[in-house]
Amino acid sequence: MSVIKIELAGVKKAFGQNQVLNGVNLKVPAGKSLVVIGASGTGKSVMIKCILGLIGIDGGSILLDGEDICHRSRRERDMLMSKFGMLFQGGALFDSLRIWENVAFGLIYGRGMDRVKARQIAEEKIAAVGLKPEVANLLPAELSGGMQKRAALARAIAGQPEVIFFDEPTTGLDPIMADVINELIISSVKNLGATALSITHDMGSVRKIADEVAMIHHGQIVWHGSVKDLDSSGNEYVEQFIHGRSEGPITLGARG
């Protein structure tokens, strides 16, 4: 048995009448890449935001390295954030700041590093994700979608996080760019020795980046196993999802 980095136990979250997470149990092994799959609107992004503390949970607990992280003071939470890196679905680059300032943002304003040093690190990370040095001085709006994703990835890894979250990293990219991003995810996770928790519904991406796969449906994890066992899971939800069938236990009505 490997060491567990993150553990969710019975996590619940509702928005008004909408019960999004209904007792999620999930263990993310340290140093591994776990990918969560599931239909749109099943609460994948909400789950990640709960772990990050961006959304408060209604019940259950979330452990990091065996310690509960939900009931901490704001100050302690801010400290915890330095262990996390997150690549948001839309990139979420700060549109009034240049690319290098985006990448260096957490270093300068979060950790109080001086600008010259932070810029140097930012330029290294920008190169590491395969962007040209000139890009550093551009604004996010001047970049294509794929370049924005790369810049956002550079920002997510700039703080040397222990855990990185990827929210649909390849959605909206052409297959070639998607593959480039997948490669970058694999190499940056490996270089950092980090634990990765990703969300996607791109099966190509799953097979490429996952060590383990979990499937979420109706606010619960319905299957969790090694990526090798994905095709022989025998789980009807997984079967339906990976083959993209419209008939099966997952119905449009249930997707909310």
Binding site: K49, L52, L54, R74, D78, M79, M81, S82, F84, G85, M86, F88, Q89, G90, A92, L93, F94, D95, F105, G106, Y109, G110, R111, R155, G159
Partner: peptide
């Protein structure tokens, strides 16, 4: 706009408090 494009969430994950910044 920063809220709906998740820039505020991103700021929080970078250990910068949006109330301060």
């Amino acid at each position: 706009t920063m809220r709906v494009t998740e820039q505020i969430d991103a700021m929080t994950t970078l250990s910068v408090n949006p109330f301060k910044y």
